[in-house]
């Protein structure tokens, strides 16, 4: 068979058309929704995305990554963010907010926000903390005789000496703990001098970059106590690991996933619809069942068995220690540098 130039051009045109087909099919919505990997991505793919599409007719594209990746993409996009809605820990979202990438939500397009505990709605509707993963004190049930009941036990229980795990400063968990310790022992969440002085008393401690690493250190027995989020410990318990997590009497910390409207996004209406769906009592209940988050909607319910394992629900949501992160942004670099130098 002889291939003529005309044949070649026709074949190339046909190939281009075929390659363009999937893009045309996906062009129903240009809304890109970010989420995390693992259980989160599974839930988004199996439950949230199909449910959202059925409820609104919008079929967004899922982007799986880390909150810090999402920040980089919004920044790199400059005048054209790939996202119209941003998801990330509130302290990370505060960075983009300070840089002017976000704008206020139109609350009339978020009717489900009426059911959200007020503490999770930022002033001026500049962000809503819609997925709450409480952080308690996790410990090895077989290696600890006196389980922790207070954050101060980290200092006072001799069983924990040299066998404590903490998040490293790159993780939101470390910054949350610093601010809590400043509150507990100092003048407030901005009293970093006191917080550093107290945490240095815990040295040597193992530092974990993320919850999975902290959980692995617990499982290995390298540490016997560590602040870890409920999700991680529930998963370990489901696998039969001898670990438990308690809500200290002073309250719990929490990874608060902050949803923000990106000013340079192009799908703001769809972004509102997406967040509104995510805030619904039904979806909040589904997330609690899927990966043990605490529903932020007052109307969400969880079954009795789950409620026993996940005590930070309903009225207990007031136990969550939330902080203002906008004032922290200018301090963040100096705090990280100080941690590097003093927590060795």
């Amino acid at each position: 068979m002889t291939l003529t130039r005309r044949d070649l051009l026709a074949a190339a045109a046909a190939s281009s058309a075929v390659l363009a087909l999937p893009r045309a099919a996906a062009a129903q919505s240009t809304l890109v929704v970010p989420t995390y990997g693992g259980l989160w991505a599974q839930f988004w793919e199996s439950t949230l995305m199909p449910g959202f599409a059925a409820a609104t007719g919008i079929q967004p594209t899922l982007d799986v990554g880390l909150g810090r990746d999402f920040v980089a993409r919004v920044r790199a996009g400059a005048g054209g963010s790939p996202y119209s809605i941003f998801m990330g820990n509130e302290n990370i979202a505060a960075v983009l907010r300070a840089e002017g990438f976000f704008e206020a939500f139109d609350m009339s397009l978020l009717p489900n926000a009426a059911g959200v505990y007020p503490q999770f709605i930022n002033p001026g509707s500049m962000g809503i903390r819609a997925i709450i993963s409480p952080i308690g004190l996790a410990y090895r049930t077989d290696m600890v005789q006196t389980p922790p009941s207070s954050w101060t036990d980290l200092w006072e229980n001799p069983e924990f000496r040299g066998r404590t795990g903490l998040y490293q400063i790159g993780n939101t968990g470390a910054v949350l703990l610093l601010r809590l310790v400043g509150q507990l022992y100092g003048s407030g969440p901005d009293d970093f001098d006191t917080a550093f002085a107290k945490l240095k008393e815990l040295l040597p401690f193992t530092q974990a970059s993320w919850s999975g690493e902290a959980a692995a250190a617990l499982i290995r027995g390298d540490v016997v106590v560590a602040p870890v989020d409920w999700t991680e410990i529930m998963i370990l318990q489901d696998k039969g690991a001898p670990v438990a997590v308690v809500a200290p009497q002073e309250g719990v910390l929490a990874f608060e996933q902050s949803f923000n409207l990106v000013a340079t996004g192009t799908e703001k209406e769809a972004a509102h619809a997406y967040l509104n769906y995510l805030l619904s009592a039904e979806v909040q209940s589904q997330m609690a069942s899927a990966f043990y988050t605490s529903p932020c909607n007052t109307g969400a319910t969880v079954d009795a068995a789950l409620a026993q394992r996940l005590p930070i629900i309903g009225d207990a949501m007031s136990q969550i220690r939330s902080f203002d992160w906008d004032s922290y942004v200018p301090e963040a670099a100096a705090i990280a540098d100080r941690w590097n130098r003093e927590m060795g």
């Binding site: 920044r75 960075v95 963040a332 590097n340």
Partner: peptide, 20 residues
């Protein structure tokens, strides 16, 4: 960990963790 930290880890902390 902290004692075995190398430049690549520090650079990632600057770029990705603290957005500098």
């Amino acid at each position: 960990g902290v004692r075995g930290r190398t430049m690549s880890v520090l650079i990632v902390q600057y770029l990705v963790d603290t957005f500098r």
